[in-house]
Design a protein around this nucleic acid. Structure first.
Lengths: 196, 196, 196, 196
DNA sequence: GATGAATGAGTATTCATTCAT
DNA sequence: GATGAATGAATACTCATTCAT
């Protein structure tokens, strides 16, 4: 990694946190450069525009969030564990959660929405592969896999992004996974343990 | 309705359409007053702020969209028909659809999101009531009704708001309703007819 | 004239002088509003952009400068006097001259050039009419009037805009007028008196 | 010519073309170095500033344009041919003309004006010498030569720089040369052939 | 000779809101 | 009820220039 690349990564991290805390629209370029301790020109040396910064921030996030999912996919685990692991790995990162209610703030709709869409897009094929494995080994039984997977991801996002789910939400979520994928009752029960 | 009220409704309609077409952030107060043919002062006579205008626009929409749902709720229809009717009545209105891809445009995330949230919020209790009716008459069989209903609404929104669903999406959606509410296979089949 | 119109005229006058003194590019909107003692928003209430301000400033100048020329055109004077009067009326106004070397400053090329072009454009038909009168009464004798008139105006602009003409320049200029329009030697001699 | 000199000439050529096409103000140093494929530092190794680059570009142009004129001056030709040759050699070069309307574009006023001034400045003494030759051999008859020559150059520039002259413009132009320099009618007629 | 990261002053423009008439 | 002139804080982006390596 070159010298310039490292600097850019630092700036991306700073921009990311600021977008998270104050929202994209509420974070001015001036805010970012002040926080980063750099000059206006330096910012525009690394980013073509504020918009492009957002794109890169989101790209970075997606990459990070998909990383764990990919490793789980290739691990030597029972299919239900893989499913649960991937879903839980896609939930907001510790960093995001650490920032008090970051993603659910109204000023963050734009970034949140962009992330959500891109995450669903990249996660559907990943999860679909696992479900196919599950069908092969008899764990699941269903057709139209991508559609079902997408539904589960959408539900998951609605449930966990805002961080305010209840015990009952979990019960129904587990039931939904089993029913939608055609698994025996109880198969996905331990999802409960992964989601705390 | 007083004369002033009528004027305000007109302004709301204009603001609504402009927000839809160009997005809330991209629509300036100047744009609105020009379109409406009124003076700046007049706008601020009717609205405390632009933000408040958005709130009122959304309130107006929700009211319109919930109206049909409420009528269906109290109609004398079989439970499955009621469910299907309400879900279909919550889909984007003709007006919104008529505006080429209005709600799915990126500049419209904010309004779209606000509407989606409020719509889910108001629709969950309505649909829950119908599901309870369905449990009484043996059509459905499940617990944690509000949670299940919310999931269905979230899926529905993901499917229909952007207007690009496929035949397979519908198949899986119907299956999801039946499974999540504990209905016999085929019970909700005719949902297909309502969604075109 | 409405209240707003008067204010706008004032602003135009201020912008005009500042463009003249410091040049268009070197005059920022901030400079103008500070000089005018108004807020940023007020400036943009009256002008769509800085560029448009320049257009209006130039339009205003041309109008002023053409005004005298038109009156002379319709006055009851011998043709040679009319020619001399119009040419002299098109020279930089007192105001411009009073500003130390305004139009010849390098930072003023843009405005100067725009004015020169527009002035030639509007003056050619005016002067051509007078030359036609001169042909009717035998003072002049030539064809291709607009082309000849344009040449005289271009020469005049080169001579007088910078304000540094010599006695010899005047002699040759007068000779050029007479020769180009086919007048008897001495006909335009008194041009000398009008040009100080 | 040293190696470094050659590099500089290349850069000047690139800057020249870019100034011509996009205008001096609209061409950033970044544009130039990108086009040239060099680094910022390299540019400032060769040029003290952007302004200085413009000066050198103009100097280079004038030199090129004056070159032909000087050769004609010293050639063994009849005086009228010399006059016509020099005037025609001062018209925009092939390169400039090849760039669709380059010099007449509004964004090019600054460079165009600088070139025009310097060209007149350097061409007046050259042409004056030829006119003096013409007076010696009886072709012309006039006084105040530099003033007359300047007028002809100014007219020529107005006519040819924008490249939109008509047949009538040429007729009047030839007439003007003859009249201003005191030549017999028809003496300069063949100017027509040189200007196509 | 050559690089490219860093600078920071400078600029035009937007826009929600107020208020005297 | 209605007007429209006036506000001024906020903001993204440009660009010539420097200098340590």
């Amino acid at each position: 990694m070159k010298k310039g690349e490292k600097r850019k990564q630092e700036l991306l991290q700073i921009a990311y946190k600021m977008f998270l805390i104050r929202g994209y629209e509420n974070t001015s370029v001036d805010d970012i450069i002040e926080e980063a301790g750099i000059a206006k020109g330096t910012y525009y040396y690394y980013f073509k525009s504020k918009e492009q910064t957002l794109e890169e921030v989101i790209g970075m996030m997606i990459e990070q969030e998909t990383e764990a999912a990919k490793q789980i996919l290739e691990a030597d685990l029972p299919v239900p564990q893989k499913i649960a692991g991937i879903i839980s790995s896609l939930r907001p990162t510790r960093e995001e959660s650490s920032i008090e209610g970051a993603l659910m703030q109204p000023e963050n709709i734009i970034m949140h929405d962009k992330i959500r869409r891109k995450l669903v897009e990249t996660a559907v094929p990943l999860l679909s592969k696992v479900v196919e494995q599950g069908i092969s080994d008899g764990t699941f039984s269903c057709s139209n896999i991508p559609q079902r997977v997408r539904m589960l991801l959408v539900i998951s996002s609605d449930l966990f992004d805002e961080g305010r789910y209840t015990e009952e939400d979990i019960i129904v979520f587990i039931d939904a996974i089993e029913k939608l994928l055609g698994a025996k009752p109880g198969t996905m029960e331990f999802v409960r343990d992964l989601i705390q």
